[in-house]
Write a protein that binds this DNA or RNA. Structure first.
Lengths: 62, 62
DNA sequence: GCTGAGTGGGGTAATTAGGGGA
DNA sequence: GTTGTCCTAATTACCCCACTCA
């Protein structure tokens, strides 16, 4: 389904951490290690695409 | 209601191993053998759907 | 200004993945 | 063929701190 909107919701670090059963620190570590895509707010906080996170949770690494 | 279709919790390898009363290594072997579904964290660790594990615990192989 | 959350650093312990052999 | 133990390397968890952002 390529007709999916790219403008899906954005998840915070805490939400992603809860989804993956990991520590929020670990999620930030994934970004630092270049293993996870993230969007930065102008303030420096990270946001993650819900579709990307869901794809990871479904076992689709991309 | 956003519809949490896949919104079940994730279990760690240790939790699954304790549930099945086996070694965590054995749980990993199940994944390697293609007999158990698993989700990988960007770091390579495995996570398992609680609903799937519970179904297996109840004797429902599929 | 205040609260809650996020970031970044450091440090240490616990858990995990993977290979090999029993 | 499945499981459990040994080993090393990597990942993760949790503690502290201070500062910034929402």
């Amino acid at each position: 389904m390529t007709g999916r909107r790219d403008g899906d919701r954005l998840l915070t670090t805490r939400e992603v951490a809860r989804l993956f059963r990991v520590d929020p620190k670990t999620v930030g570590n994934w970004v630092t290690a270049g293993r996870l895509e993230s969007i930065r707010t102008p303030g420096g906080h990270r946001r993650y695409r819900e579709s990307l996170v869901h794809a990871l949770l479904r076992g689709e690494t991309g």
